[in-house]
Amino acid sequence: MVSTAAADNPWFSWSYVTENADVLWARTTEHALLTVEAVAIAALVAIPLGLLASRVRWLAGPLLGTAAILYTVPSLALFAILAPIMGIGRQPVLLGLVLYALLVILRNTVTGLDGVDPAAVDAARGVGHGPLQVLARVRLPNALPSIMAGLRLATVTTVALVTVGVVVGYGGLGQLMFQGFRNNFYRAEIMTATIACVLLALVLDLVLWAAGRALTPWLRGRSA
């Protein structure tokens, strides 16, 4: 038998969704834009660093080690450290997300570049390709699947971490989750925000998967 309290506070309510559609859309958009921006900035930093680490081998250890140390800092602690320095709001959350995404993208970039067949590189050099041509035509295309896998993993992870940004006043869908907990544990609000986070992660992952497929047509031909 369902209690009156449980009936009045369901885990999901379609009426809540329809009545708060504007707020849900605004928070989801905020969440998505912050995720995309953080991963894009991290990629712009991590991929060139990965190229450098792959070329200057002694740099790989320090770069990956530094990124790993940043990754091990608990998200709540990191945002708490950044807030007094940068203030409350979007900027500390964005920086924290970028720092967390660096390791995954950097590691996958280095792994992908290191996994390129040396025979293919030697063959490119043998036909007269210079270092930049070898990089653009051989090394990066062959490393691209690993790089895209890193971007996908970083994106899904970032979607989850954005919600923690609520501790410094900017958490996207995390704002609704936190509000639901404060509002007498309003289940529908918490569950709706959670489902929206999962769907957002799936959509962004699917977009990156499709982009990876489009950028590597030779892999489709090989699998066929």
Results as ranks from 00 to 15, higher is better:
L161R: 04
L161N: 02
T163Y: 05
T163E: 02
T163M: 06
T163S: 14
V166D: 03
V166F: 08
V167G: 05
V167C: 07
V167D: 06
V168T: 10
V168F: 07
V168R: 10
V168W: 00
Y170S: 14
Y170N: 04
G171K: 06
G172N: 07
G172K: 03
L173R: 00
L173K: 04
L173E: 01
L173T: 08
G174Y: 04
Q175S: 11
L176I: 14
M177K: 08
F178A: 15
Q179A: 15
Q179H: 13
G180I: 01
F181L: 15
F181Q: 13
F181T: 11
R182S: 12
R182K: 15
N183S: 13
N184K: 10
N184C: 02
N184I: 11
F185L: 15
F185E: 10
F185K: 09
Y186P: 02
R187C: 08
R187I: 05
R187T: 12
A188G: 01
E189K: 11
I190E: 04
T192M: 06
A193T: 05
A193Q: 01
A193R: 07
I195F: 04
I195C: 05
C197Q: 09
V198Y: 06
V198P: 11
L199D: 08
L200G: 03
L200R: 00
L200E: 02
L202M: 11
V203K: 11
V203Q: 05
V203E: 04
L204I: 09
D205N: 13
D205E: 12
L206N: 11
V207G: 09
V207S: 07
L208D: 06
L208G: 05
W209L: 15
W209P: 00
W209V: 13
G212V: 05
G212Q: 12
